[in-house]
Computed example of a mutant assay.
Amino acid sequence: MKLQTDNAVLVLNYQFALHVVKLNQYLTTEKKEYVLSKQLLRSGTSIGANLNEAQAAISKKDFIAKMSIASKEAIEIGYWLNLLADSEYIDRNSVKTQAIFTE
């Protein structure tokens, strides 16, 4: 299945998910951090999964439920990113991670 390139939200979120995957790879290989990075990976990729599922919702209620889950996951990833930065696993101002904090 091909990514819907006409839906800006899906495209931007896919790019964000790729940043999350790359950050997870960095954390596990360079920093040897596995617990927080796994949580980051789960919440960061779950956003897009739920946004995509919402596109095939069978009802308005189903659509709202999927979008609500995506919203909650977006809030959760903010928590994990801040925790990783405050525990000094990542630097929120470095070139490598600044984009993910902005997104």
Rank of each mutant, 00 (worst) to 15 (best):
T29R: 10
I90H: 07
N82P: 03
A8I: 13
S68N: 15
N13K: 00
F16N: 03
Y89M: 04
K72P: 03
K38D: 15
F16S: 02
K32A: 13
A57Q: 02
Y34M: 09
A56N: 14
L41W: 05
D6N: 12
N82K: 13
E53I: 01
I64H: 01
I69E: 00
K66F: 01
L27F: 12
A70H: 11
G78M: 09
N7V: 15
V21Q: 03
V9F: 01
T45P: 01
H19L: 14
Q25D: 15
E73C: 07
K38A: 15
M1V: 06
E30V: 07
G44K: 02
N24H: 15
E88P: 01
T5E: 09
G44V: 05
I64M: 02
T29D: 09
A56G: 13
V21S: 01
Y14R: 03
D91C: 06
E88S: 14
W80V: 04
N50G: 11
G48T: 09
S37W: 15
L41T: 08
Y26D: 15
A54L: 03
A57S: 12
T97R: 06
S87E: 10
S68Y: 09
D6T: 14
D86L: 14
Y34A: 05
G48E: 04
V35A: 11
Q55G: 00
A99R: 08
K66G: 00
K2M: 14
M67S: 08
D91G: 04
A17Q: 11
A54W: 01
F101K: 06
L10C: 07
N93P: 01
Q98V: 11
T5S: 04
A74H: 08
S46Q: 14
A74M: 13
S68D: 14
T97K: 08
A70R: 09
S87R: 11
D91E: 13
L12E: 15
A49F: 06
I64R: 04
V9R: 01
E73G: 08
T45I: 06
L81Q: 09
Y34T: 12
N13Y: 06
I69S: 00
N7K: 14
A74N: 07
V20Q: 04
E76M: 05
I100Y: 10
Y79E: 00
